[in-house]
C-alpha cells in the first residue's frame, strides 16, 4: 500500500500528546492512552481506503498515492490551522535533566526514556510479527495475497489490522518525538525521508534490519550534525536513501 501519510500520522500523534499534556497528563501515559484511539483511527482510514479504492480496483497507480498524499496534506494544514506554525514542546519530570554516566559524559534523561520505550516497542512488534498467528499473516499478506486467501485467511481483515497497528504505533512514537525535541507541523516531510530511508536501507519487511538501519541513520545524522553543521542534517537521510536505491535497492537485509 502506498501509505505516504504515515509520517503525518506520527506528527499528528505528537500533537495529540501535546494537547493531552496541556490537560496535565504525562506525555508517555498520553502516548499509551492514544494508542487505541489511533488504532481505531487507522482501521477507519483503511476501511475507507478499501471501500473507495481497493474493492473497486482503482487503487493501482496514481490514485492510491494521491489519496494518502492528500490525507497527509490535510493533516499537516489542519495542524497549522489549529496549533499554528510555531514549534511545540512538552514538560515532564524527566525532560531537561540528565544522568552522569562516567566522568564528563552526561546523557539527557529524556533520551534514555525515549530510547528505552522505542526499543521495547520495536521488540514487541518484531515478536508479534514473528511469533503470533496474526503477525505472521501480516508478513504473508505482503508477500502473496492470493496465497493467503487460499489458506483461508481474509487479506482485507489482516491488512486492516496491520494498518491499525501501524497507526496505533504512531501515537506512542509521536509522544516520544515530542519528548525528545520540539515539534512543528512541517516535520512530516522530513520523516517521510527518515521512514523510507530506514525501511529501504533495512530491506523491506525486515524488522531486525530496521533497528540496525535506524541506528546507522541516527549515527550518520549526528556525525554530520557535529562535523559539517546543522544546516546539512536534513539531507543525510535522503542522501542515504538515494544511494541505497541506486546501489542496492534490496537494502542491507533484504532478500
Amino acid at each position: 500500500m502506498p501509505h505516504v501519510a504515515h509520517p503525518a500520522f506520527l506528527v499528528l500523534g505528537a500533537y495529540a500528546t501535546y494537547a493531552l499534556v496541556g490537560l496535565g497528563m504525562d506525555p508517555l501515559l498520553a502516548g499509551l492512552l492514544l494508542m487505541p484511539v489511533f488504532f481505531a483511527f487507522g482501521i477507519a482510514v483503511y476501511q475507507f481506503y478499501y471501500l473507495t479504492f481497493e474493492r473497486r480496483g482503482t487503487d493501482l497507480g496514481v490514485r492510491g498515492i494521491a489519496f494518502f498524499f492528500g490525507i497527509a496534506f490535510i493533516v499537516q494544514v489542519g495542524l497549522i490551522l489549529v496549533f499554528g506554525v510555531d514549534q511545540r514542546m512538552v514538560e515532564a519530570s524527566y525532560i531537561g535533566t540528565s544522568i552522569e554516566v562516567f566522568g564528563d559524559v552526561r546523557i539527557p534523561q529524556r533520551m534514555i526514556v525515549a530510547f528505552g520505550v522505542a526499543l521495547a516497542l520495536t521488540i514487541t512488534l518484531a515478536l508479534y510479527l514473528s511469533r503470533t498467528f496474526t503477525g505472521r499473516a501480516i508478513k504473508a499478506v505482503a508477500q502473496d495475497e492470493g496465497a493467503l486467501r487460499l489458506m483461508g485467511a481474509d487479506p482485507v481483515r489482516i491488512k486492516r489490522w496491520a494498518f491499525g497497528i501501524a497507526t496505533g504505533t504512531c501515537a506512542l512514537a509521536g509522544a516520544l518525538l515530542i519528548i525528545v525535541g520540539p515539534v512543528d507541523p512541517n516535520l512530516d516531510r522530513l520523516y517521510i525521508g527518515r521512514t523510507f530511508c530506514v525501511v529501504v536501507l533495512a530491506g523491506m519487511g525486515s524488522m531486525s534490519g530496521t533497528l540496525v538501519a535506524g541506528l546507522i541513520l541516527g549515527v550518520a545524522e549526528s556525525l554530520v550534525l557535529a562535523s559539517v553543521g546543522t544546516a546539512w542534517a536534513p539531507a543525510v537521510a535522503f542522501g542515504i536513501l538515494l544511494a541505497v536505491l541506486g546501489v542496492r535497492p534490496a537494502g542491507l537485509f533484504g532478500r
Binding site: 502506498p2 498515492i65 522530513l190 517521510i192 529501504v200 539531507a235 535522503f238
Partner: peptide
C-alpha cells in the same frame, strides 16, 4: 536513471528526497 529501473513507489520517494537535498544545498 537512479530509480525508474525500480517499479512502484521508489521514484516518488526519490523525488521527495531530491527536493529536501536540493533545498538544503
Amino acid at each position: 536513471l537512479l530509480t525508474l529501473r525500480l517499479r512502484g513507489i521508489f521514484f516518488s520517494i526519490a523525488t521527495i528526497a531530491i527536493t529536501i537535498i536540493l533545498e538544503t544545498v
